[in-house]
Amino acid sequence: FSITQFVRNLGLEHLMDIFEREQITLRVLVEMGHKELKEIGINAYGHREKLIKGVERLI
Rank of each mutant, 00 (worst) to 15 (best):
L10D: 00
E22S: 09
L51A: 01
L29A: 02
G54H: 06
H47Y: 09
N43W: 12
G33H: 06
T4F: 14
I18F: 06
L29H: 04
Q5P: 04
I3W: 06
M32D: 00
I24H: 02
R57N: 14
E39P: 01
F19V: 04
N9P: 03
V55N: 01
K35A: 10
E20C: 09
G46Q: 15
I59H: 09
L37E: 01
F19D: 00
D17N: 11
N9D: 15
V28W: 07
H14D: 11
Q23R: 15
Q5G: 08
S2G: 13
L15H: 03
E36C: 05
R27T: 12
E22K: 13
I18Q: 03
E49M: 13
K38D: 06
F19T: 00
E36M: 05
R57A: 15
G33E: 02
L12T: 01
E20P: 03
R8K: 14
K35R: 10
L15C: 05
S2T: 15
G41Q: 03
I52G: 00
L12P: 01
Q5T: 12
I18A: 04
E13V: 10
H14V: 12
L58T: 04
Y45R: 11
T25V: 05
R48G: 02
L51I: 15
G11Y: 05
K35D: 11
E56D: 07
R57F: 10
E36P: 03
I3M: 13
K35S: 10
F19W: 02
E39V: 07
M16S: 10
H14Y: 13
R27P: 11
E13C: 14
L58R: 03
Y45Q: 09
H47E: 15
M16K: 08
I24N: 02
I52L: 14
H14E: 13
N43I: 15
L58I: 09
L12S: 00
L10P: 00
I42Y: 00
V28Y: 07
L12Y: 02
L26Q: 02
I52V: 06
R48P: 02
I24Q: 02
F6I: 05
V28K: 15
T4I: 12
S2W: 08
E56F: 08
D17Y: 15
Q23Y: 07
K53N: 09
R8G: 07
I52D: 00
G41V: 05
M16A: 12
I3S: 02
F1C: 15
G11H: 08
I40F: 05
T25F: 03
K50A: 14
I59G: 08
